[in-house]
Nucleic acid binder design. Structure first.
Lengths: 208, 208, 208, 208
DNA sequence: TATGAATGAGCATTCATTCAT
DNA sequence: CATGAATGAATGCTCATTCAT
């Protein structure tokens, strides 16, 4: 009895482990290919081949290609969020806080070239089309900024009359657009951090 | 002789006129379909059928589908630019100027629902992939903002130390992201105009 | 020793019992799904899931999907044959005999809606293709009719010059086709039984 | 004007002719392959290759594979109907009429081996599943028999009390089942014709 | 200039079956 | 005996583009 149960558990455990490993390999391969080639140019086949698995295995772990891409985006979001948390928690004044976040993002981008661009742009492409339209990665980050600004508003003199959610969105929009332009035109990271920090701090200041 | 020449000229004139008419019909149909269904869900066939022309005619006017989409985006850009020019030229102080631009954009969006969203998002999808990546519609608008701010910087007390191109990009990024969020969450146009104007004015003010 | 032997026997007995139970559960699930969805739309996975067993177990009991379907058909055939035997044995003249059989078939069909249709039609689909083609369920029933008619021929004035096997086939063909049509067009069971009985009796009568 | 119009008409005419030719080639290839391999084992690709056309052309002429099969079945039905009409019109008494029909069917079957079997059996497989279930080829033939019997009922002493539609269905069911059995068991065509004719005539005769 | 029949590479997805545990 | 993760051949279909007329 005990033996049979143990074997069963063992089998389940091994099976589950194997399953998890497969999923991980697929996600790793997917991330690599989505970033290198983009969503449309990456076929499920390519992903499974890169993962060293059979074609069918893909659909054991993801409902479809879209689902896989969304999992990749979510993974990226979690990593960036973690990096931001790690960096920004030690900052104590507003400029330092903003700088920390920008630094975290740019560090992550350098470690994972193209990843954020892929996650942000290809997301629009796969808009479910089933009507509503889910919240975008950028929109989520805008909301997180709103949260963070709300916290800072308590300790820092900040314009009180703001619609914080809108503000958060504006901030991430500004950061994304400015960053993509700055790197495309060869500006330095330091310069960009300085400029954006200044810009955001001024925008938040109570004085009109 | 004269007659034959006249006929030739006549034919040429007729041909040119016909050609232009065809192109116009195709572009109108393309705009409608791209906005309604998006880039990927619109086939050249759909466009020609909607235009009442034969399938092959499409390639008489556009090199390929991508080219047609780009023409549509360009048309939209020109229309928006014209609307902005019309509205912003009468404004005299900075807040009035910003308000005028925002109003022009939102008016245009209301007259052409979904058009800007389509132009902005689907553009990323068709990134030629041939290496560099062309300049985005939003990037172009960022540069126009930079130009306009440069002009204003002469007459209005404005922070001199700015990297104006970056600033322009940040402004359009903020506007786009904030607007898309605001309308998705049911905020009023007036509120959005007020909030964004205030935000941008503060960000540009010389005081840190 | 004795103990070990007993355990072995016990295990074997348990194993056999368990095995039989599994097969029964699979067949029950298979019958349900084949009837509800048809042969092609039913996957072995669906059957095992409905049976509450693991995917692999299916192939412990059936060589393949086809084998499972054939087992289902055979089960149906046995049930219908039993029902016919039960009902027809008490009949004493030819019309009564035919009526009894038809009644048995229609009773069975009402208790198991769709079952006969599934067994009869999907059988053609899975024709092994390995050349000859096995004998169809309907052909088997035709032969059984031939047997039954042979028995009746001894006691009832019946045309002697018949090719009885052909006759049996014709009878089942007529019954199946007429029944499927009659129920599709909303005719009553009683009417159908009367019409078919009359038809068959006349066809068998010695007078030309 | 006239010239341009003529050219247009000419182009249209040529185009239409080419289109029709393509469709014909596809249907011919489809018929050959469906009969040789069956519905499931025939891929649209196989059909287009056999027709010497490109893959996509298939979907220019048929909505899908099913649609193509249905067109094949319909073609077969028309051919058989025409053959039956040709043969049966000259017959004057009931047995002669039945014999003529059977002969027409068997002649057609010999000229087109396997065709009827394919049309009749594979039709069930592709039952649209969208609920109702369309009328089967065999059902249609049953109704045609009913029509023909109705005409004969006026000139030949025939049981008046029959439900003719049911009778028609029974007759085709009997013919199909008996024929398939007879040929499988090596019986001669002449024997089968004689037996079936006798059977049907007796079934129709007024005497019970 | 205009046409539309033809093209065929390409794709996402399925499912009967195997086998290591 | 039972399991279920893994498999990969196979499939029906699409669509941007060409070219003979």
């Amino acid at each position: 009895m005990a033996t049979s149960n143990e074997t069963l558990i063992d089998n389940n455990a091994r099976g589950a482990k194997r399953r998890l490993e497969s999923r991980k390999r697929l996600l790793t391969a997917a991330r690599k290919l989505f970033v290198e080639r983009g969503y449309h140019a990456t076929r499920p086949q390519d992903i499974t081949r890169a993962a060293g698995l059979g074609h069918g295995t893909f659909y054991l772990h993801f409902a479809d290609k879209r689902d896989c891409f969304l999992a990749f985006v979510d993974e990226a979001r979690e990593e960036v969020d973690a990096a931001i948390m790690r960096r920004s928690s030690s900052a104590k004044d507003l400029p330092g806080f903003i700088e920390a976040i920008l630094t975290a993002i740019y560090d992550y981008s350098e470690e994972h070239p193209g990843l954020l661009a892929t996650a942000l742009t290809d997301e629009a492409v796969i808009a479910s089309g089933d009507g509503k339209g889910e919240m975008t990665l950028l929109h989520r980050w805008g909301e997180e900024w709103a949260e963070m600004l709300k916290v800072h508003a308590k300790t820092v003199p900040m314009a009180r009359d703001y619609d914080l959610p809108i503000l958060g969105q504006a901030v991430v929009g500004a950061i994304q657009q400015a960053s993509s332009f700055a790197f495309r035109t060869g500006r330095s990271r330091a310069h960009l951090v300085k400029t954006l920090t200044q810009l955001i701090v001024r925008a938040l200041s109570p004085r009109s």
